[in-house]
């Protein structure tokens, strides 16, 4: 047991999530993130990616969601009863979809709020601020600007940098590519990879941009209709025929006729 736990930082076991006591969103999702790994959580809109991440970080309560079954273990301990701030203190922090920077605060103030839960003194916080600026030189340039007036890419960097300021061992990153130009997406994923390699932060990454996510992740889970329908090494997944067809948009057979589309739908139903 101890060995498995040492190598697994996060494990989600068969969780079910119900919103507002009636709407069943996750119907038994299991996944695990190895220590120091990048794991991608893929799927279309409404598949349950965000809900899964929020279930882990315990932000569901604010949206009347409830984990009704299953368990979530972070660092080998059950964490469902913890408040979001306890979890952040233990090293698991979420970067929410849509960036959610504090618009009226400057970039630097945004980053400093990330260190809110820390108790290790100003010197350490300053050091980490410097570290974040080194990874995101653009943020250093704009440190005094109000976050609300910075570009989407800068806000995404600010959100990730803010999470890094908490000194986390694990970041739940929700759709970092949203609304960004492909070049910026590449830039941000490159930094995520560096943070993973140099700072030893594990990532669970929810993405719709399957091709980019599978290039940077080592392992992937595909969610559909609140269930994990497929999982595997990132390489395997990106070579899988179904994934190629449904998520990467490469059919291999050129133009499709309407009959093929019907076929597509049928196969997709089978998958779900």
């Amino acid at each position: 047991m101890s060995d498995a736990h040492n190598n697994t930082i996060l494990s989600v076991n068969n969780i079910e999530v119900i919103y507002d006591h009636v709407i069943l969103v996750l119907k038994g999702v299991s996944l695990s993130v190895p220590r120091g790994g990048i794991v991608a959580l893929l799927g279309a809109n409404g598949a349950g990616k965000t809900t899964t991440l929020k279930a882990i970080s315990n932000l569901l309560g604010a949206e009347r969601g409830d984990v009704t079954k299953g368990s979530i273990e972070f660092e080998g301990e059950e964490v469902q009863a913890l408040s979001p701030n306890d979890l952040v203190r233990r090293g698991c922090i979420q970067v929410m979809e849509g960036r959610h920077c504090f618009g009226h605060l400057s970039i630097e103030e945004n980053l400093l709020t990330g260190a809110y839960t820390r108790k290790d003194g100003n010197a350490a916080i300053k050091r980490d601020l410097e570290m974040v600026y080194n990874y995101f030189p653009r943020l250093r340039e704009r440190r005094q600007s109000q976050a609300g007036y910075t570009s989407g890419g800068e806000q995404q960097m600010c959100a990730i940098g803010r999470a890094m300021m908490a000194g986390p061992s694990m970041i739940l990153l929700d759709e970092p590519s949203m609304g960004l130009a492909p070049q910026l997406v590449e830039e941000i994923f490159e930094i995520v990879k560096q943070l993973n390699e140099k700072e030893g932060v594990s990532f669970l990454l929810a993405e719709q941009n399957t091709s980019v996510a599978l290039r940077y992740a080592s392992y992937g889970y595909i969610l559909e209709g609140g269930r994990v329908v497929m999982d595997g090494e990132a390489k395997e997944l990106s070579e899988n025929q179904d994934v190629k067809e449904f998520y990467l948009g490469v059919g291999g057979e050129g133009q499709k006729s309407f009959r093929d589309v019907k076929h597509y739908k049928r196969r997709k139903r089978w998958l779900a």
Binding site: L59, A62, P84, N85, V88, M96, C101, F102, G114, Y116
Partner: peptide
């Protein structure tokens, strides 16, 4: 929401 997510 964001405040909650950074542990406030």
């Amino acid at each position: 929401q964001a405040a909650l997510s950074v542990g406030i």
